[in-house]
Write a protein that binds this DNA or RNA. Structure first.
Lengths: 241, 241
DNA sequence: AGGTATTTTATCGTATACAATAAAATACCA
DNA sequence: TGGTATTTTATTGTATACGATAAAATACCT
């Protein structure tokens, strides 16, 4: 059925879908903070790593740019986005509005086996956190929030939450204090409890506190690596001359 | 400084930004329903119309696809998205959550001159509606909602609302009854009133009714042009034989 | 004549080549 | 030796060429 099976070496996956895993690899690396904000993403280099031409790489970078995970500077290429303080605020405000707003829907449609899945996710997250697998923990935390959003049944809103969570990961990377890494270890379990009890309002309120806690754990100082204002720093009119 | 200035004819805009107007032209045409859902968008044809190579066209189509305005079918190319009934529901639920949720913020930060701008937009929309400029009216209505969202100050949410409004336009094209075209003629003016009075809660409630009214005006019958189930239609087991 | 097999054609997917540009390195001059 | 001008180099932007594939058209056979 698939001739690629007949030619074991040099497996060329057939068209289009070949880019999907590359996209995922890149976006995971960014979300897990193995690629840090500011890191340059040269087209040639990526093309070589993933064994595709620059054409394919560019397509992927463009997608990531629309999702705000990478920043494309004309003639300067791509780099991992370094979110501004304002962006950070917008993202967390958006999460407040959307994720909290979805809780009642999620609670209403909550089924026992779904709760079990969520508990397992929360367990794995706690596990990763405990054993110091920082990257894994970050990813699992984002996954938890996204999975939750999907349970609402609204594909459009779930996709939006997915973006917001990815961006949050970048925000954590830039503004997060060492030590904290976003979600407190038992928050997610508590939340599942309220959802299991179909208590949408409690879940909503808890989610709100949860997100506020994450946001509060950030230290919002933007170090601007743009040209510093020497004039202002050293005082005007030729002091030191 | 810019040699293109020296060569008046054959003005080649310089890099990158050249695609932006093409993107806008396409997306406007879709939103204004001059390109109808299902319409094929051949790369060659677009490339010729806009005087760029297929490379540029593909980039734009990909962006539109991520925004759900066009659908890319592997090896079959691009076409204007024909939203499903489920998508329509998701989009309007999302608008309910987000646009209504933003009203208090908008009301709080409402300034007199902003209200004037909004009134002017509403006036132009009514004007277009009255004089039968269907395409223009649709666009202006979407613009109004987007402009409102921007007033919240949250760029991320505003961008999301923009997408939702664009998609709504497609939904209207498919499921809208002839006659209605979404927003009632004076709704927007009423809304501005509440915002001017800084009454966020009233504005929120009104927006909710407004969106519900639009959604209710749709006739949600999906004609499936996929292969009809003849077996079911003509009864099983060789009747008519 | 009707239905299946084959060829043709239209159109997309991908790689590659070349032009354009901005940064880095070097050379030049006061 | 410090600063400016020039060349070199690295890297992106865009077009084009070629291969692949699926739909349409045609030819073939019964």
């Amino acid at each position: 059925m698939n001739d690629a099976q007949g030619a074991p070496h040099l497996v060329k996956k057939k068209g289009e879908a070949r880019h999907e895993p590359i996209y995922k690899a890149l976006s995971d690396a960014i979300i897990e903070q193995r690629l840090k904000p500011g890191a340059r993403l040269r087209e040639d280099a990526l093309a070589e790593v993933f064994n595709v031409s620059r054409t394919g790489v560019r397509k992927i970078l463009q997608r990531l740019a629309l999702e705000q995970l990478v920043t494309l500077t004309p003639r300067r290429g791509a780099s991992v986005t370094r979110p501004t303080a304002e962006e950070a605020k917008d993202v967390f405000d958006a999460r407040q509005l959307v994720e909290c707003g979805l809780m009642p829907d999620v609670a209403r449609q909550m089924e026992p086996n779904e709760a079990a899945v969520l508990r397992e996710m929360a367990r794995r997250e706690r596990e990763a956190l405990r054993s110091g697998e920082r990257s894994a923990a970050i990813k699992l935390s984002a996954d938890f929030h996204v999975h939750l959003a999907r349970l609402s049944g609204n594909t459009t809103l779930a996709a939006f939450v997915e973006q917001l969570c990815s961006r949050s990961s970048l925000i954590l990377a830039v503004y997060g204090q060492r030590g904290h890494l976003g979600c407190e270890s038992h928050d997610h379990d508590d939340l599942i409890g309220y959802l299991e009890a179909n208590d949408g309002e409690r879940a909503k309120a808890f989610m709100s506190r949860h997100l506020k806690a994450i946001e509060a754990s950030l230290s919002m100082v933007e170090e601007d690596d743009s040209a510093p204002d020497l004039q202002q720093i050293f005082g005007g009119k030729g002091a030191m001359r």
